[in-house]
Design a protein around this nucleic acid. Structure first.
Lengths: 223, 223
DNA sequence: TATAATTAGTGTTGACTATACAATAACTAT
DNA sequence: ATAGTTATTGTATAGTCAACACTAATTATA
Protein backbone atom coordinates (compact mmCIF):
# COMPACT_ATOMS: atom_id res chain seq x y z
CA UNK A 1 0.00 0.00 0.00
CA UNK A 2 1.49 3.30 -1.04
CA UNK A 3 0.56 6.94 -0.95
CA UNK A 4 1.78 9.63 -3.28
CA UNK A 5 1.96 12.07 -0.35
CA UNK A 6 4.62 11.55 2.33
CA UNK A 7 2.01 10.22 4.72
CA UNK A 8 3.28 8.61 7.92
CA UNK A 9 0.73 6.98 10.20
CA UNK A 10 0.99 7.20 13.98
CA UNK A 11 1.84 3.97 15.73
CA UNK A 12 -1.34 2.03 16.46
CA UNK A 13 -1.60 0.16 19.74
CA UNK A 14 -4.29 -1.70 21.67
CA UNK A 15 -4.79 -1.82 25.42
CA UNK A 16 -7.20 -3.90 27.47
CA UNK A 17 -8.85 -3.21 30.80
CA UNK A 18 -9.62 -6.71 32.06
CA UNK A 19 -11.98 -6.84 35.02
CA UNK A 20 -12.96 -9.58 37.40
CA UNK A 21 -14.78 -9.57 40.72
CA UNK A 22 -13.11 -11.65 43.44
CA UNK A 23 -14.31 -11.80 47.06
CA UNK A 24 -16.61 -8.87 46.47
CA UNK A 25 -13.84 -6.67 45.05
CA UNK A 26 -13.60 -5.35 41.50
CA UNK A 27 -10.12 -6.02 40.15
CA UNK A 28 -8.09 -4.97 37.10
CA UNK A 29 -5.32 -6.94 35.45
CA UNK A 30 -1.97 -5.12 35.25
CA UNK A 31 1.54 -5.97 34.11
CA UNK A 32 4.70 -4.80 35.76
CA UNK A 33 6.86 -3.10 33.15
CA UNK A 34 10.28 -4.65 32.83
CA UNK A 35 11.59 -2.07 30.34
CA UNK A 36 11.68 1.65 29.76
CA UNK A 37 9.65 3.74 29.48
CA UNK A 38 7.87 3.51 32.84
CA UNK A 39 10.07 0.60 33.97
CA UNK A 40 8.77 -0.66 37.30
CA UNK A 41 5.35 0.93 36.88
CA UNK A 42 2.26 -1.09 36.15
CA UNK A 43 0.49 -0.99 32.81
CA UNK A 44 -2.53 -2.44 31.06
CA UNK A 45 -1.83 -5.42 28.84
CA UNK A 46 -1.31 -3.96 25.38
CA UNK A 47 0.97 -3.66 22.41
CA UNK A 48 1.39 -2.82 18.77
CA UNK A 49 -1.31 -3.36 16.18
CA UNK A 50 0.24 -4.33 12.87
CA UNK A 51 -1.12 -3.62 9.43
CA UNK A 52 -3.56 -6.29 8.30
CA UNK A 53 -4.57 -7.15 11.87
CA UNK A 54 -7.84 -6.02 13.45
CA UNK A 55 -7.60 -4.43 16.87
CA UNK A 56 -9.46 -7.41 18.28
CA UNK A 57 -6.98 -9.83 16.76
CA UNK A 58 -4.06 -7.77 18.02
CA UNK A 59 -5.56 -7.77 21.48
CA UNK A 60 -6.09 -11.51 21.39
CA UNK A 61 -2.49 -12.11 20.33
CA UNK A 62 -1.02 -9.68 22.88
CA UNK A 63 -2.99 -10.71 25.96
CA UNK A 64 -2.42 -14.36 25.18
CA UNK A 65 1.31 -13.79 24.87
CA UNK A 66 1.83 -11.34 27.74
CA UNK A 67 -0.61 -12.61 30.33
CA UNK A 68 -1.77 -16.04 29.13
CA UNK A 69 -5.32 -14.67 29.21
CA UNK A 70 -7.32 -15.68 26.17
CA UNK A 71 -9.85 -12.96 25.53
CA UNK A 72 -12.17 -15.24 23.58
CA UNK A 73 -12.36 -18.00 26.15
CA UNK A 74 -11.44 -16.40 29.48
CA UNK A 75 -13.57 -13.31 29.02
CA UNK A 76 -17.31 -13.55 28.69
CA UNK A 77 -17.85 -9.96 27.69
CA UNK A 78 -15.58 -7.77 25.56
CA UNK A 79 -16.27 -4.32 24.17
CA UNK A 80 -14.29 -1.58 22.46
CA UNK A 81 -14.07 1.47 24.71
CA UNK A 82 -12.43 4.54 23.28
CA UNK A 83 -9.41 5.55 21.26
CA UNK A 84 -6.82 7.58 23.15
CA UNK A 85 -4.74 9.70 20.85
CA UNK A 86 -3.00 12.59 22.55
CA UNK A 87 0.35 13.10 20.90
CA UNK A 88 2.47 12.91 24.05
CA UNK A 89 0.86 9.94 25.74
CA UNK A 90 3.81 7.72 24.79
CA UNK A 91 7.21 9.34 25.36
CA UNK A 92 8.66 7.33 22.46
CA UNK A 93 6.43 9.06 19.92
CA UNK A 94 2.86 9.46 18.80
CA UNK A 95 0.94 6.27 19.56
CA UNK A 96 -2.81 6.00 19.15
CA UNK A 97 -4.37 3.37 21.38
CA UNK A 98 -7.65 1.62 20.75
CA UNK A 99 -8.81 0.42 24.15
CA UNK A 100 -11.06 -2.47 25.11
CA UNK A 101 -12.81 -3.57 28.25
CA UNK A 102 -13.26 -7.23 29.11
CA UNK A 103 -14.96 -9.05 31.96
CA UNK A 104 -14.44 -12.56 33.29
CA UNK A 105 -14.12 -14.59 36.46
CA UNK A 106 -11.50 -16.72 38.18
CA UNK A 107 -8.96 -15.72 35.57
CA UNK A 108 -5.63 -17.41 36.14
CA UNK A 109 -2.48 -15.55 35.19
CA UNK A 110 0.76 -17.45 34.97
CA UNK A 111 3.18 -14.66 34.25
CA UNK A 112 4.82 -13.55 37.52
CA UNK A 113 4.72 -9.94 36.32
CA UNK A 114 0.95 -10.00 35.77
CA UNK A 115 -1.37 -9.40 38.69
CA UNK A 116 -4.92 -8.32 39.51
CA UNK A 117 -5.34 -5.16 41.61
CA UNK A 118 -8.41 -3.89 43.41
CA UNK A 119 -9.85 -0.93 41.51
CA UNK A 120 -9.61 1.29 44.57
CA UNK A 121 -5.99 0.52 45.40
CA UNK A 122 -4.14 0.63 42.12
CA UNK A 123 -0.35 0.88 42.02
CA UNK A 124 1.70 3.45 40.11
CA UNK A 125 0.44 3.38 36.54
CA UNK A 126 2.33 3.89 33.29
CA UNK A 127 1.26 6.22 30.44
CA UNK A 128 -2.34 7.50 30.66
CA UNK A 129 -3.50 4.10 31.90
CA UNK A 130 -5.07 5.65 34.99
CA UNK A 131 -7.47 7.61 32.81
CA UNK A 132 -8.17 4.56 30.69
CA UNK A 133 -9.07 2.50 33.75
CA UNK A 134 -11.30 5.29 35.09
CA UNK A 135 -13.04 5.51 31.72
CA UNK A 136 -13.52 1.74 31.63
CA UNK A 137 -14.91 1.67 35.15
CA UNK A 138 -17.46 4.38 34.30
CA UNK A 139 -18.50 2.45 31.22
CA UNK A 140 -18.73 -0.78 33.17
CA UNK A 141 -21.03 0.83 35.74
CA UNK A 142 -23.22 2.11 32.92
CA UNK A 143 -23.28 -1.31 31.24
CA UNK A 144 -24.30 -3.09 34.40
CA UNK A 145 -27.03 -0.52 34.83
CA UNK A 146 -28.77 -1.11 31.53
CA UNK A 147 -27.73 -4.58 30.35
CA UNK A 148 -27.41 -8.10 31.72
CA UNK A 149 -23.59 -7.91 31.39
CA UNK A 150 -23.07 -9.04 35.02
CA UNK A 151 -23.29 -12.59 33.77
CA UNK A 152 -19.66 -12.20 32.68
CA UNK A 153 -18.50 -11.97 36.29
CA UNK A 154 -20.53 -14.89 37.64
CA UNK A 155 -20.38 -18.68 37.47
CA UNK A 156 -23.11 -20.48 35.58
CA UNK A 157 -25.10 -20.94 38.77
CA UNK A 158 -25.00 -18.32 41.48
CA UNK A 159 -26.92 -17.08 44.48
CA UNK A 160 -28.77 -13.80 44.68
CA UNK A 161 -26.28 -12.66 47.32
CA UNK A 162 -23.39 -13.29 44.94
CA UNK A 163 -25.23 -11.36 42.27
CA UNK A 164 -25.83 -8.45 44.60
CA UNK A 165 -22.21 -8.52 45.81
CA UNK A 166 -21.04 -8.27 42.22
CA UNK A 167 -23.18 -5.22 41.57
CA UNK A 168 -21.99 -3.65 44.80
CA UNK A 169 -18.35 -4.30 43.90
CA UNK A 170 -18.75 -2.62 40.52
CA UNK A 171 -20.92 0.27 41.72
CA UNK A 172 -18.80 0.83 44.80
CA UNK A 173 -21.81 1.17 47.09
CA UNK A 174 -24.29 -0.96 48.96
CA UNK A 175 -27.73 -1.85 47.68
CA UNK A 176 -30.87 -2.69 49.61
CA UNK A 177 -31.28 -6.44 49.66
CA UNK A 178 -35.06 -6.63 49.40
CA UNK A 179 -35.33 -4.01 46.69
CA UNK A 180 -32.45 -5.49 44.73
CA UNK A 181 -34.03 -8.94 44.66
CA UNK A 182 -37.48 -7.70 43.82
CA UNK A 183 -36.18 -5.58 40.99
CA UNK A 184 -33.73 -8.05 39.52
CA UNK A 185 -36.23 -10.88 39.56
CA UNK A 186 -38.82 -8.66 37.88
CA UNK A 187 -36.42 -8.19 34.95
CA UNK A 188 -36.84 -11.87 34.14
CA UNK A 189 -33.20 -12.33 33.17
CA UNK A 190 -32.59 -15.25 35.52
CA UNK A 191 -34.46 -18.30 36.71
CA UNK A 192 -34.31 -20.41 39.83
CA UNK A 193 -32.74 -23.87 39.64
CA UNK A 194 -33.50 -26.83 41.92
CA UNK A 195 -30.01 -26.68 43.38
CA UNK A 196 -29.00 -24.93 46.58
CA UNK A 197 -25.67 -23.70 47.78
CA UNK A 198 -24.47 -24.75 51.24
CA UNK A 199 -21.60 -22.71 52.60
CA UNK A 200 -21.25 -22.55 56.36
CA UNK A 201 -23.42 -22.50 59.43
CA UNK A 202 -26.45 -20.82 57.98
CA UNK A 203 -29.43 -21.22 55.70
CA UNK A 204 -28.48 -22.48 52.24
CA UNK A 205 -29.18 -20.27 49.23
CA UNK A 206 -31.09 -21.07 46.08
CA UNK A 207 -28.98 -21.12 42.93
CA UNK A 208 -30.06 -19.16 39.87
CA UNK A 209 -29.05 -19.20 36.21
CA UNK A 210 -29.17 -16.54 33.52
CA UNK A 211 -31.72 -17.24 30.81
CA UNK A 212 -29.19 -16.05 28.26
CA UNK A 213 -25.47 -15.41 28.28
CA UNK A 214 -25.84 -12.96 25.43
CA UNK A 215 -25.87 -9.23 26.01
CA UNK A 216 -29.38 -7.87 26.42
CA UNK A 217 -30.65 -4.41 27.20
CA UNK A 218 -32.88 -4.04 30.23
CA UNK A 219 -36.35 -2.56 30.10
CA UNK A 220 -35.35 -0.36 33.03
CA UNK A 221 -32.11 0.25 34.84
CA UNK A 222 -30.71 0.23 38.35
CA UNK A 223 -30.00 3.37 40.31
CA UNK B 1 10.50 7.28 15.68
CA UNK B 2 11.85 3.84 14.94
CA UNK B 3 11.21 0.28 15.96
CA UNK B 4 13.71 -2.50 15.93
CA UNK B 5 11.03 -4.89 14.67
CA UNK B 6 9.68 -4.46 11.14
CA UNK B 7 6.48 -2.94 12.46
CA UNK B 8 4.19 -1.28 9.91
CA UNK B 9 1.14 0.56 11.24
CA UNK B 10 -2.19 0.47 9.44
CA UNK B 11 -3.26 3.72 7.84
CA UNK B 12 -5.13 5.87 10.35
CA UNK B 13 -8.11 7.87 9.17
CA UNK B 14 -10.86 9.95 10.75
CA UNK B 15 -14.47 10.24 9.63
CA UNK B 16 -17.21 12.52 10.91
CA UNK B 17 -20.95 12.05 11.06
CA UNK B 18 -22.21 15.63 11.12
CA UNK B 19 -25.87 16.01 12.02
CA UNK B 20 -28.27 18.90 11.85
CA UNK B 21 -32.06 19.10 12.12
CA UNK B 22 -33.72 21.18 9.41
CA UNK B 23 -37.46 21.56 8.98
CA UNK B 24 -38.06 18.72 11.40
CA UNK B 25 -35.75 16.34 9.56
CA UNK B 26 -32.50 14.85 10.85
CA UNK B 27 -29.80 15.28 8.23
CA UNK B 28 -26.25 14.01 7.70
CA UNK B 29 -23.49 15.77 5.80
CA UNK B 30 -22.03 13.76 2.89
CA UNK B 31 -19.50 14.37 0.14
CA UNK B 32 -19.76 13.10 -3.38
CA UNK B 33 -16.59 11.18 -4.18
CA UNK B 34 -14.77 12.51 -7.24
CA UNK B 35 -12.13 9.78 -7.28
CA UNK B 36 -11.80 6.04 -7.01
CA UNK B 37 -12.52 4.04 -4.99
CA UNK B 38 -16.28 4.50 -4.79
CA UNK B 39 -16.22 7.32 -7.34
CA UNK B 40 -19.72 8.80 -7.59
CA UNK B 41 -20.84 7.37 -4.26
CA UNK B 42 -21.34 9.54 -1.22
CA UNK B 43 -19.05 9.41 1.80
CA UNK B 44 -18.64 10.93 5.23
CA UNK B 45 -16.15 13.79 5.41
CA UNK B 46 -12.86 12.18 6.42
CA UNK B 47 -9.26 11.64 5.59
CA UNK B 48 -5.82 10.63 6.75
CA UNK B 49 -4.56 11.24 10.25
CA UNK B 50 -0.85 11.99 10.17
CA UNK B 51 1.68 11.23 12.85
CA UNK B 52 1.83 13.99 15.45
CA UNK B 53 -1.75 15.04 14.86
CA UNK B 54 -4.60 14.16 17.23
CA UNK B 55 -7.70 12.68 15.66
CA UNK B 56 -9.60 15.80 16.66
CA UNK B 57 -7.05 18.03 14.94
CA UNK B 58 -7.11 15.85 11.84
CA UNK B 59 -10.88 16.06 11.76
CA UNK B 60 -10.80 19.82 12.17
CA UNK B 61 -8.33 20.18 9.31
CA UNK B 62 -10.16 17.78 7.01
CA UNK B 63 -13.72 19.02 7.49
CA UNK B 64 -12.56 22.61 7.17
CA UNK B 65 -10.78 21.82 3.93
CA UNK B 66 -13.30 19.46 2.35
CA UNK B 67 -16.61 20.97 3.45
CA UNK B 68 -15.77 24.41 4.89
CA UNK B 69 -17.40 23.24 8.12
CA UNK B 70 -15.40 24.22 11.17
CA UNK B 71 -16.04 21.62 13.81
CA UNK B 72 -15.08 23.93 16.67
CA UNK B 73 -17.34 26.81 15.69
CA UNK B 74 -20.09 25.29 13.52
CA UNK B 75 -20.71 22.31 15.77
CA UNK B 76 -21.94 22.74 19.29
CA UNK B 77 -21.46 19.13 20.32
CA UNK B 78 -18.72 16.75 19.20
CA UNK B 79 -17.91 13.30 20.53
CA UNK B 80 -15.71 10.39 19.54
CA UNK B 81 -17.85 7.42 18.49
CA UNK B 82 -16.03 4.23 17.70
CA UNK B 83 -12.99 2.97 15.82
CA UNK B 84 -13.76 0.88 12.76
CA UNK B 85 -10.94 -1.43 11.91
CA UNK B 86 -11.92 -4.36 9.71
CA UNK B 87 -9.08 -5.13 7.37
CA UNK B 88 -11.06 -4.92 4.14
CA UNK B 89 -13.10 -1.80 4.79
CA UNK B 90 -10.91 0.20 2.40
CA UNK B 91 -10.10 -1.59 -0.87
CA UNK B 92 -6.77 0.22 -1.06
CA UNK B 93 -5.49 -1.45 2.09
CA UNK B 94 -5.97 -1.70 5.82
CA UNK B 95 -7.24 1.62 7.13
CA UNK B 96 -8.42 2.07 10.72
CA UNK B 97 -10.92 4.87 11.10
CA UNK B 98 -11.61 6.79 14.29
CA UNK B 99 -15.11 8.18 13.90
CA UNK B 100 -16.74 11.21 15.45
CA UNK B 101 -20.25 12.52 15.70
CA UNK B 102 -21.00 16.24 15.63
CA UNK B 103 -24.20 18.26 15.93
CA UNK B 104 -25.00 21.78 14.82
CA UNK B 105 -27.63 23.92 13.14
CA UNK B 106 -27.97 25.97 9.98
CA UNK B 107 -24.61 24.71 8.79
CA UNK B 108 -23.67 26.25 5.47
CA UNK B 109 -21.60 24.18 3.04
CA UNK B 110 -19.95 25.91 0.12
CA UNK B 111 -18.45 22.94 -1.69
CA UNK B 112 -20.81 21.88 -4.52
CA UNK B 113 -19.97 18.22 -3.80
CA UNK B 114 -21.03 18.48 -0.15
CA UNK B 115 -24.67 18.12 0.77
CA UNK B 116 -26.93 17.28 3.69
CA UNK B 117 -29.20 14.23 3.30
CA UNK B 118 -32.18 13.20 5.39
CA UNK B 119 -31.23 10.23 7.59
CA UNK B 120 -34.04 8.13 6.16
CA UNK B 121 -33.24 8.75 2.50
CA UNK B 122 -29.51 8.39 2.19
CA UNK B 123 -27.87 7.93 -1.21
CA UNK B 124 -25.42 5.18 -2.19
CA UNK B 125 -22.71 5.17 0.44
CA UNK B 126 -19.00 4.42 0.09
CA UNK B 127 -17.01 2.06 2.33
CA UNK B 128 -18.77 1.00 5.55
CA UNK B 129 -20.17 4.48 5.97
CA UNK B 130 -23.72 3.15 6.15
CA UNK B 131 -22.84 1.24 9.32
CA UNK B 132 -21.02 4.23 10.74
CA UNK B 133 -24.04 6.47 10.22
CA UNK B 134 -26.35 3.87 11.76
CA UNK B 135 -24.03 3.60 14.75
CA UNK B 136 -23.92 7.38 15.10
CA UNK B 137 -27.69 7.65 14.90
CA UNK B 138 -28.13 5.07 17.67
CA UNK B 139 -25.66 6.92 19.82
CA UNK B 140 -27.34 10.23 19.12
CA UNK B 141 -30.71 8.85 20.19
CA UNK B 142 -29.13 7.58 23.40
CA UNK B 143 -27.43 10.92 24.05
CA UNK B 144 -30.62 12.88 23.61
CA UNK B 145 -32.28 10.47 25.99
CA UNK B 146 -29.99 11.00 28.92
CA UNK B 147 -28.27 14.37 28.37
CA UNK B 148 -29.20 17.93 27.41
CA UNK B 149 -27.33 17.54 24.07
CA UNK B 150 -30.33 18.77 22.04
CA UNK B 151 -29.10 22.28 22.66
CA UNK B 152 -26.62 21.67 19.83
CA UNK B 153 -29.44 21.51 17.28
CA UNK B 154 -31.35 24.59 18.46
CA UNK B 155 -30.91 28.36 18.28
CA UNK B 156 -30.23 30.23 21.50
CA UNK B 157 -33.93 30.92 21.96
CA UNK B 158 -36.50 28.41 20.84
CA UNK B 159 -40.09 27.35 21.38
CA UNK B 160 -41.19 24.16 23.07
CA UNK B 161 -42.65 23.03 19.74
CA UNK B 162 -39.25 23.43 18.07
CA UNK B 163 -37.68 21.48 20.92
CA UNK B 164 -40.21 18.69 20.58
CA UNK B 165 -39.80 18.63 16.78
CA UNK B 166 -36.07 18.19 17.21
CA UNK B 167 -36.54 15.22 19.52
CA UNK B 168 -39.07 13.72 17.14
CA UNK B 169 -36.71 14.15 14.18
CA UNK B 170 -33.90 12.35 16.01
CA UNK B 171 -36.07 9.63 17.56
CA UNK B 172 -38.02 9.08 14.36
CA UNK B 173 -41.36 8.98 16.14
CA UNK B 174 -43.94 11.33 17.57
CA UNK B 175 -44.15 12.32 21.20
CA UNK B 176 -47.15 13.38 23.24
CA UNK B 177 -47.18 17.17 23.52
CA UNK B 178 -48.47 17.46 27.06
CA UNK B 179 -46.23 14.75 28.48
CA UNK B 180 -43.21 16.06 26.63
CA UNK B 181 -43.62 19.57 28.00
CA UNK B 182 -44.35 18.44 31.52
CA UNK B 183 -41.35 16.17 31.58
CA UNK B 184 -38.87 18.48 29.90
CA UNK B 185 -39.80 21.43 32.07
CA UNK B 186 -39.47 19.26 35.17
CA UNK B 187 -35.83 18.57 34.23
CA UNK B 188 -35.08 22.26 34.83
CA UNK B 189 -32.65 22.49 31.92
CA UNK B 190 -34.38 25.47 30.30
CA UNK B 191 -36.04 28.66 31.43
CA UNK B 192 -38.70 30.89 29.92
CA UNK B 193 -37.69 34.27 28.48
CA UNK B 194 -39.92 37.34 28.16
CA UNK B 195 -39.83 37.08 24.36
CA UNK B 196 -42.43 35.39 22.19
CA UNK B 197 -42.23 34.04 18.69
CA UNK B 198 -44.84 35.14 16.11
CA UNK B 199 -45.00 33.05 13.01
CA UNK B 200 -48.30 32.95 11.15
CA UNK B 201 -51.98 33.12 11.88
CA UNK B 202 -51.99 31.52 15.29
CA UNK B 203 -51.14 32.02 18.91
CA UNK B 204 -47.51 33.11 19.45
CA UNK B 205 -45.19 30.86 21.41
CA UNK B 206 -43.03 31.63 24.41
CA UNK B 207 -39.31 31.45 23.78
CA UNK B 208 -37.07 29.43 26.08
CA UNK B 209 -33.33 29.26 26.67
CA UNK B 210 -31.07 26.51 27.99
CA UNK B 211 -29.62 27.23 31.40
CA UNK B 212 -26.32 25.82 30.21
CA UNK B 213 -24.84 24.99 26.83
CA UNK B 214 -22.54 22.44 28.41
CA UNK B 215 -23.31 18.75 28.32
CA UNK B 216 -25.21 17.59 31.40
CA UNK B 217 -26.65 14.25 32.33
CA UNK B 218 -30.33 14.09 33.11
CA UNK B 219 -31.72 12.79 36.35
CA UNK B 220 -34.06 10.64 34.30
CA UNK B 221 -34.44 9.94 30.61
CA UNK B 222 -37.01 10.04 27.85
CA UNK B 223 -38.58 7.02 26.23
C1' DT C 1 -66.32 42.47 12.62
C1' DA C 2 -67.51 37.73 13.01
C1' DT C 3 -65.74 33.37 11.67
C1' DA C 4 -62.42 29.93 10.24
C1' DA C 5 -57.93 28.23 10.49
C1' DT C 6 -53.87 27.23 12.93
C1' DT C 7 -50.63 26.50 16.48
C1' DA C 8 -49.79 27.21 21.75
C1' DG C 9 -50.82 25.95 26.05
C1' DT C 10 -52.67 23.25 29.91
C1' DG C 11 -54.48 18.69 34.06
C1' DT C 12 -56.16 14.43 35.64
C1' DT C 13 -56.32 9.71 36.39
C1' DG C 14 -54.72 5.05 36.77
C1' DA C 15 -50.88 1.99 36.37
C1' DC C 16 -46.52 1.22 37.39
C1' DT C 17 -41.91 1.96 39.72
C1' DA C 18 -38.80 3.37 43.41
C1' DT C 19 -37.55 3.63 48.12
C1' DA C 20 -37.48 2.95 52.94
C1' DC C 21 -37.66 -0.24 56.27
C1' DA C 22 -37.38 -5.33 59.97
C1' DA C 23 -38.84 -9.81 61.02
C1' DT C 24 -38.70 -14.85 60.23
C1' DA C 25 -36.48 -19.16 58.10
C1' DA C 26 -32.87 -22.53 57.64
C1' DC C 27 -28.87 -24.17 58.59
C1' DT C 28 -24.29 -25.40 61.61
C1' DA C 29 -21.48 -25.40 65.67
C1' DT C 30 -21.22 -25.75 70.38
C1' DA D 1 -31.27 -26.44 73.18
C1' DT D 2 -29.03 -22.21 72.05
C1' DA D 3 -26.21 -18.93 69.58
C1' DG D 4 -24.53 -17.43 65.33
C1' DT D 5 -24.94 -16.62 60.55
C1' DT D 6 -26.85 -15.88 56.10
C1' DA D 7 -31.32 -16.36 53.18
C1' DT D 8 -35.71 -15.00 52.31
C1' DT D 9 -39.85 -12.21 52.26
C1' DG D 10 -43.88 -7.67 52.21
C1' DT D 11 -45.91 -3.23 52.80
C1' DA D 12 -46.74 1.49 52.47
C1' DT D 13 -45.63 5.91 50.59
C1' DA D 14 -43.96 8.80 47.19
C1' DG D 15 -42.78 9.44 42.65
C1' DT D 16 -42.99 8.65 37.64
C1' DC D 17 -45.11 7.21 33.26
C1' DA D 18 -48.71 7.06 29.71
C1' DA D 19 -53.01 7.96 27.90
C1' DC D 20 -56.01 11.33 26.64
C1' DA D 21 -58.99 16.52 24.67
C1' DC D 22 -60.13 20.97 25.30
C1' DT D 23 -59.31 26.19 25.56
C1' DA D 24 -56.31 30.38 24.26
C1' DA D 25 -54.28 33.56 21.08
C1' DT D 26 -53.32 35.02 16.95
C1' DT D 27 -54.11 36.17 11.61
C1' DA D 28 -56.62 35.89 7.31
C1' DT D 29 -60.71 36.42 5.09
C1' DA D 30 -65.64 36.57 4.22
Amino acid sequence: MQYNSPYVAPTLTVDAVIFQVTDGVLQVLLLNRQNEPFKGSWALPGGYNAQGETTHAALQRITQQKTSVNIDTDLRYVEQLYTFDTVDRDPRGHAVSVTYMGCGRDISVNDPHAQFFAIDSLPNLAYDHGSIIAYAHDRLIAKLNYTNAVYAFLPKRFTLSQLQNTYEAVFGRELDKRNFRKKFLSLELIHETDETWRDGAHRPAKLYEFNSQKLESLSRSFD
